[in-house]
């Protein structure tokens, strides 16, 4: 008897919550922190357009413990996002051939991360210099 009656197992709906997929889920969620930072900056721009009182209130908010806590959490999440973003970077580009062999993905990640870190540091230093 040659009967083909393929059985389809239902795909679990909670795959994203389980190992090894959990790391992917955390990585994607940390992207929300980038949006969070954007929202904070945007709120600042908006209050600036609303006049000095509104701006002062925004600055007061920034100095509040709640805001400091929020920024610490956002910073941690954004740093994690940056780290994983550069880990994926080599997956999104064609193989980089140097001489006869492809450059190792770890090397690409490392060089790009260091470059981005250096740019960020330069930006901070320039901003501090301008502020002074």
């Amino acid at each position: 008897m040659n009967e083909s009656r393929p059985y389809r197992r239902p795909a679990p709906k909670d795959w994203w919550a389980k190992a090894p997929y959990r790391a992917y889920t955390v990585r994607e969620m940390s992207g929300l922190a980038v949006a969070g930072y954007g929202a904070v900056l945007f709120a600042g721009l908006y209050s600036l357009s609303q006049g000095p009182e509104s701006w002062a209130a925004y600055v007061r908010f920034l100095q509040s413990p709640v805001s400091l806590l929020l920024h610490a959490a956002l910073l941690a999440a954004v740093l994690y996002h940056v780290k994983t973003w550069f880990q994926i970077l080599p997956k999104t580009m064609p193989k980089l051939i140097l001489g006869r062999a492809p450059v190792a993905q770890r090397t690409i990640t490392r060089v790009a991360t260091i470059f981005a870190g250096a740019c960020s540091l330069a930006l901070v230093l320039i901003t501090l210099g301008v502020a002074r």
Partner: peptide, 10 residues
């Protein structure tokens, strides 16, 4: 060339 091979070999 070896470089052209490396571009797709894996």
């Amino acid at each position: 060339t070896p470089a052209q091979l490396a571009a797709y070999e894996s």
